[in-house]
Amino acid sequence: MNEEQGIRFLITDDDSGRSFALLSLALVVGLAFHAYTFNVTKANDIANKYAVDVYSIDFEHYDVQDSDSLLIANGEVDVLQLSREIMGVDEGSLMAQITFDVSYSESSGQIGDPCDEVHVSIAPNGMEADWQNENNILSDSNDNCDPMTLVVYVYPGYVGESSEVVGNSAKYWNDVWTNETYGSGTIELEISVETNEGPTSFATGGDDNEEINVQWTVSFFEVEIKSIPS
C-alpha cells in the first residue's frame, strides 16, 4: 500500500493533521463534560427520571365574615358589592367560595301584615369564579320571611379536603392551586323587594320598604404541597 492509500495521508495532508487534532480535542473535552454531567452532576435526576412523583396537597382554610343591612324600597333593586378590596384582604388571597345569607322579617309593625316578597340574585360575571359549578346557587326568592342562602364556588375543584396526586411536578401542582386570578373582580348581589300590603295598611300609612340583612362569608384557603418520598 502506498502512502496515498493510507488514512494517515488523509489526516496529515494540507494541514499537518490540525483539523483532526482540533476535532479530536473538542470531542474528548466535550464527552468528558458529558460524562461528568451524566454520571455525577445529574446522576440522581437521571436515575429517577421515570419515577412517578407523588405529592400531598393540604389545605388550610379560614373564613372572613361580615354583615350588612339594607333598607330597600318597594319595587327597588339594591346591590351589595364584594371584592377582595372591599373585604380588606390581601390581593393574593386564594378564595374558595362566597356564601350570602339573606334574612329579613316583616318590619312594618302592622298587625297581620304579610311578609314582603324578596328576590336575591348574583350575576355570573364581575368576578373570576367557577360559574359553571353545578352547586352554585345564584338566585332565590320568597315571601315568607325564610332566610335564603346563595353560594358561589370561586376556585374550581376546591373541596377543602387534603389529597394525594400522582405525576407532574411540584411547580405544576403549585401553579394549579395558587391561581390568584380566581376571586379577582367584584361580585354583585342584587336584592329587590316587593312589599305586600297588610289588611290594616290603609289606616297606618302602608308598607313601602323592607330592611334586608345580608351576612356574607368568604372562605379562603392556603395550600401546602409536599413531595411524598417513594
Binding site: 476535532l23 466535550g30 451524566f38
Partner: peptide, 12 residues
C-alpha cells in the same frame, strides 16, 4: 453520548 457528540461537532 452519541447525541452529545453530535452537538459537539455542531458547535465546532
Amino acid at each position: 453520548m452519541g447525541l452529545a457528540a453530535a452537538v459537539i461537532f455542531g458547535i465546532v
